[in-house]
């Protein structure tokens, strides 16, 4: 457990003062922001006319951007649900007890790299969706005019079911087995169940950019087509 730290400071008034000054600074910032920029208010809601483009609030634009690559039940339901579940599991899956209470990379490489990857993907998707998407959710550079209306691409195709299933099976099986063989210590530290959960969440996370890449590079729309759902 953590041992008593020798250097202790009084909360009053040092910390209280710092907190107070932060609150004051933020109040000033908010007030200035509110005076300078008005919150948006468009015309009254009209179910008959869709805004083009109609964007979700910015913190959900990343998920909306994923709608280009995934069906709604994936982008809007499964992916956020899995993200929340995995976030909640993190402390129970991470067996590395080192690196508490300071910013460190060298002794927590695996955790930090993967977390930062997920975090930056989330931010990147938000930035693309918010700044680079114009009418018809097409890609527009910030300096391009939205006047020229672009069309959605048309020539997408689906992987045949057999290739799709085997591709997914290879991806997940290889992703489960190879790290176990290469990094035996990693496997042993986590134990079977925990190892499976760790690798599953990581494989699921990397599946998102892989699918995006397949779509952008080869126009593949669905990796797996079934009568009930498409991935």
């Amino acid at each position: 457990m953590e041992r008593e730290h020798p250097e202790k400071k009084y909360v009053f008034p040092d910390l209280v003062f710092m907190e107070f000054m932060t609150a004051v600074a933020l109040t000033v910032i908010l007030l200035a922001w509110a005076l300078l920029v008005n919150a948006p208010l468009l015309e009254m809601a009209n179910p008959g006319i869709s805004e083009n483009p109609s964007k979700a609030p910015w913190y959900f634009v990343g998920l909306q951007e994923l709608l280009v690559y995934f069906d709604p039940w994936m982008a809007g339901v499964m992916i956020p649900a899995v993200i929340i579940m995995c976030l909640m599991l993190i402390p129970y899956l991470d067996r590395n007890t080192q690196g508490v209470g300071r910013y460190t990379f060298s002794i927590r490489r695996f955790a930090v790299i993967n977390y930062l990857f997920g975090f930056s993907m989330w931010i990147a998707l938000i930035l693309i969706g918010y700044f680079l998407r114009g009418p018809n959710w097409q890609l527009y550079w910030p300096w391009e005019s939205w006047e020229t209306i672009r069309q959605a691409e048309e020539n997408t195709w689906n992987l045949p079911p057999l290739i799709g299933i085997s591709g997914l099976a290879i991806y997940f099986c290889a992703g489960m087995i190879i790290p176990k063989l290469v990094r035996i210590k990693f496997y042993e530290r986590h134990g079977f169940k925990r190892y499976v959960l760790v690798m599953l969440s990581i494989l699921l996370m990397y599946f998102v950019p892989i699918k995006i890449f397949l779509r952008l590079a080869f126009d593949i729309r669905y990796v797996l087509v079934t009568p009930w759902f498409n991935v």
Binding site: S54, V68, N136, Q151, A152, E154
Partner: peptide, 22 residues
């Protein structure tokens, strides 16, 4: 028919031509 949200397009009879509409 053109959808402004994600660029789906449909023929006059509603058949989907392009875009993410399933």
């Amino acid at each position: 028919f053109k959808c402004p949200c994600h660029g789906s397009r449909f023929r006059f009879n509603g058949e989907n031509l392009a875009g993410p509409a399933p």
